[in-house]
Design a protein around this nucleic acid. Structure first.
Lengths: 118, 118
DNA sequence: ACTGTACATCGAAGAACGTCGAACTTCGAA
DNA sequence: TTCGAAGTTCGACGTTCTTCGATGTACAGT
């Protein structure tokens, strides 16, 4: 296990890569968890995939420049990259708002803009 | 050639699909052309791909809900979908700003945040 | 030193993507 | 009605993605 995984330099981060990383439902759900701007560990990401698949998605987000990974013992802590968030603040902050809203909408069974018909 | 291509309903547009559509350099360049909010035709999209490939990318953008296609004779006119732009205004408007800026930066050989060293 | 935990990496399978040329469709013009 | 132009669709090819189980690696505890 690498003690310090490779995070791309801020100036090497490309917009297309960011969008590509965000263009997957599973990764969007990961971003929704991270939207509170705090550091999270694996157990927080309740994504219904195999552990190896979660690792894969984490790697994509990290290599796109969206997340920062920190190791402590055998544990891995993940958080948003504040420098990337700053450089692409308009796009990313609004994205985080959207995914966080989607998440709580999915959690609370309260239909609003598409009422379920009996 | 279909007289009216299928555009998805506004409420069916998914964020992951939007990002996925934006996650390609060629399509991002198309979006940069459309960023002026006016209607464009094929000649405006100076993307170095075969016509069939351009059609493919156009279809992806259309099916994601980003663009509106209008036919007049044998010609196809493309513009941004204003309803989608409104619903995801924060994300999409900032994205358009970024891609438009990237485009003019690529056009004008004026380095600013990465000065070329002699 | 051994064992277990936490996570990454590998290898493989199937699906999706980007690309092209060729064939097709639709329309306008001769 | 015949021809060409504009654009889409089709078929193919190679690449990349998503997913998994199995294996590997680093650390913590006994």
């Amino acid at each position: 296990m690498p003690r310090q995984p490779d995070h791309p330099d801020l100036e090497d981060i490309q917009l297309a890569r960011l969008f590509s990383a965000l263009g997957d439902p599973a990764r969007l759900r990961i971003m929704a968890v991270l939207a509170d701007r705090s550091e999270h560990q694996r157990e927080d990401f309740t994504v219904e995939v195999a552990p190896s698949t979660l690792s894969h998605h984490m790697k994509i987000l990290r290599e796109a420049g969206l997340t920062r990974h920190r190791f402590e013992g055998t544990r891995c802590f993940v958080s948003l990259r504040t420098d990337t968030l700053e450089r692409f603040s308009a796009v990313l902050n609004s994205t985080l708002e959207l995914v966080a809203a989607d998440e709580e909408e999915a959690a609370a069974p309260r239909p609003h803009h598409r009422p379920a018909q009996s």
